[in-house]
Amino acid sequence: MLYQPTADRAMPIRTFLKHQMRNVAPFVTLIALLAFFGVASPSFATMDNAYNILTQISVAGIMAVGLTFVILCAEIDLSFAAIANAAGIAVAYFTVQESYVNVANMPLSGAVAVCLALLTCVALGLINAFGLTVIGIPSFIMTLAMMQIAAGICALLVRGQILYAVPDVVKTLGSGSIGGIPWIVIVLAIFLLVGHLVLTYTRFGRYVYMVGGNREAAEYSGVNVKWVLAAVLVISAVCSGVAGMLGVAYFGSAQQNEFDGYLLDAIAAVVVGGTSLFGGRGGIGNTIIGLCILGVLNNGLDHVEIDSFLKILIRGLILLAALIINVYAQNLRATPIESPD
């Protein structure tokens, strides 16, 4: 048609990479990590270890599903790990414990205990939503306060004790396995799948992306922005609640501050995967990659001879690198081509 100089012919690939930076970079990182650990340690690239990794990322993964919704809306939830803790403790609290443990010890059925725990996290999520949408507290501060509140509830319920008994259904899903596959991995897969389907194929999912992409425009299009924001915070709380209950079974006990480490892990998984901190870009696919990166990194560093104290630093550096890519990709998108206006 028209004469195109060679530099222009190369453009599509370059523009493609530029636009897909946030998707490509995490994927390349994952491949690189897999290759590195595969070569560095003979015990890394085994089927058993693959299950290990999947099991290890499950609790953080279920939390990350809900968090993906929140971050896609350009909000943040800092309270989900504490809410997970509260749900985990609640489910144990409403289960009959050993006689020396001083809690309610009500003879409730497992289903009721699970429902009460879920109710707890829904309530906490609703309070988050109320603070953000009705009062207008920024989510960063609101959920920071909720983090303390949920931790306080945990402290009051357990009073420094450790609870071991959980309902059978929670125990099975958290620590059992079927056909060699841990149930918790299956639950994670279901959450990821449902999360993906909701985000991609439902009206609500579209609204999440639109609210994150341009909140003002969403409002001027007649989208009930506050409702969407409230919903994502409740979704995040519920996902955390499930993660918390299964986590209690996975660890074998419920106690104070059990999931504090997962706060960073889940946020890192979402962001490392390439979901934009500015909202509107990314999704469950990105979160899956991010989870794998984190899981491979944590697991792989155990397989190679490395100072265990150095591990923490390395994790921090990887997270920093991901943040740089995240912001860089955002800037690339913002100025894809020079525009005359």
Binding site: N214, E216, A217, S221, R333
Partner: peptide, 18 residues
């Protein structure tokens, strides 16, 4: 325009949102 359009989304999503 900035406050009513979704620049990173395709045209049809911008139209259908209403």
């Amino acid at each position: 325009r900035r406050s009513m359009l979704f620049y990173q989304e395709p045209v049809f999503k911008n139209v259908s949102i209403g």
